[in-house]
Nucleic acid binder design. Structure first.
Lengths: 131, 131
DNA sequence: TAGTTTTATAACCTCATGGTTTTGTACCCG
DNA sequence: CGGGTACAAAACCATGAGGTTATAAAACTA
């Protein structure tokens, strides 16, 4: 499971400064100083944020003399989206009501997922038909 | 901007236990004890996780005598996905190469976004054509 | 060589997080 | 009333996150 990747990715995205940095990088490469400019925050603070983003694989860095230009690496975002898409049905209105109904009908006969610490993601009760 | 919502949502998702809880809840409502069962973790620990999920709006709770059944509330996940979708182009292979090229051609003439702490999300250089 | 720019590291502070155990509260049962 | 069950709240602890300032390293500039 890509648990660590998801951990790092979601954690990285949980900070508004880091999301802003990603947004900025979507417009193209940028140096650390350039990235730091819009924020009233010290340069080391930004460097730390970049390290977090790098650890999550969301940013890669090049070399240009003293500069370390940052590039957006969006692949982990896809992994995050893939995980989230699993729940798409659940945020689509009509489903919500249906689920409430089904849940009431089943009235607490769910078997707890077996195995280790983390219940496998494949265990959800998925229905194919929309309505 | 829904910055606080995104903060809370992504932060909530950054923990594997909490993601597992959401996965479990996708199969239907569950009580705290039921949710705690698969993990070797104390009940208060799970209650804390649930509080985090609740604060992020990812879980709502009912009443059934002493029990406080938890329900998945997926709306914030949609908000998260909407934010992430902004970057879809960037994780689609061919685009990566194209962007690298464009970036080189433009060679560092990006104007830093004006305004407050967080550069607005609308400022990205979006291109329509896939190439 | 010295000086400037760009970035990283180190040391430090504060507060949040994630876990614990213990205790308290609310509800059902007898 | 007493007693079990389900959950929350309190108090505590260790670690890490996010920020600071000060310093060091690496590369260009003169």
């Amino acid at each position: 499971m890509a648990a660590d990747l998801l951990d790092a990715t979601f954690a990285a995205l949980a900070d508004p400064t880091r999301r802003a940095i990603l947004t900025r990088l979507a417009a193209g490469e940028a140096t650390v100083t350039e990235l730091a400019a819009p924020f009233h925050m010290s340069q080391p603070a930004i460097s730390k944020h970049l390290k977090v983003l790098e650890r999550a694989g969301l940013v890669s860095r090049g070399r240009d003399a003293q500069r370390r230009p940052c590039r957006l690496e969006a692949r982990p975002l896809k992994v995050a989206v893939d995980w989230l898409e699993t729940y798409r049905d659940y945020w689509e209105e009509s489903y919500q009501r249906l689920d409430a109904l089904l849940t009431e009908l089943r009235a607490g006969e769910q078997a707890p997922p077996a195995g280790g610490d983390v219940p496998p993601a494949g265990e959800q009760a998925r229905r194919e038909s929309g309505g």
